[in-house]
Design a protein around this nucleic acid. Sequence first.
DNA 1: TTTATTAAAGATAAAAATATCCGAAATAAT
DNA 2: ATTATTTCGGATATTTTTATCTTTAATAAA
Lengths: 141, 141
Amino acid sequence: MFSKACEYALKIMIYLNSKREDTHLAGLKEITKAIDSPEAYTAKILQQLVRSKLLISLRGPSGGFKVADRPITLLEIVVAIDGEKIVSSCVLGLEQCSAKHPCPVHQRFVSVRDYLKGVLTTTKLSDIESGLDEGISFLKM
Amino acid sequence: MFSKACEYALKIMIYLNSKREDTHLAGLKEITKAIDSPEAYTAKILQQLVRSKLLISLRGPSGGFKVADRPITLLEIVVAIDGEKIVSSCVLGLEQCSAKHPCPVHQRFVSVRDYLKGVLTTTKLSDIESGLDEGISFLKM
DNA sequence: TTTATTAAAGATAAAAATATCCGAAATAAT
DNA sequence: ATTATTTCGGATATTTTTATCTTTAATAAA
């Protein structure tokens, strides 16, 4: 459904959001440990998230990353990494596919996409009760 | 959402199903022309569909492909090419993700997946009014 | 039986996604 | 100021997906 990079991005954002102690920034090592991801690749994704203004970073000792201080939807995260295609492009890959010029399954999948897009746009990072510390939900294993 | 190979597979199946003149088989060239796909790669996908018993093939002059003579759901096609992952695996890529051991967005996406799976399982190839000949729907451009 | 046609199968190539490595820049602490 | 730490940026490597090429096998028609 989402690319591996996007999966990592979602995990990163959820993890960083779950530990709202505004003082301490989480470093690359801490993050990769928390979400069990390859370090160097994760660094690249973190860069993308910073450029997309979803994360704020600080270099140097006691540097690291934190979530930008504003409401962020899951859609923003997905689009930052995978682009619009997951919520907009044709299931059969047609360049042009619309109600006026539909593929044979257009109508059936419009609703699927709308449903997905709905979940992605209405779910804000702050809505997610991670329960990570309490062992209620998990980002690895 | 689906791989390129899977998009081609769906187009192939819809196209072949749309021209139910049981006598004439459609050849590779005809198919690639109808769905605008790379010839050699399409041949590989056709092979997979034949092995998965979704298509029947015949070699030699006037040989080609036709849809197996039984009800076929979109899910069968998708699973034949992309495997179960699209309807079963965790959005965040966790090996183990279930109601008992969920990722933080498990509940929100269960419903999305169920909806998608529903469309894929309930839609049979024969349900799709392609309207290809009539220019009502399209498999290319 | 020979030939032309078509799918099957295996090897190879190209492109994209995933992942790593290394030097540079920033910055807090010493 | 120097040093240690940490992100940034670019280059490179690996893996997977997408795509091509070439030979073989089957088979219908001549």
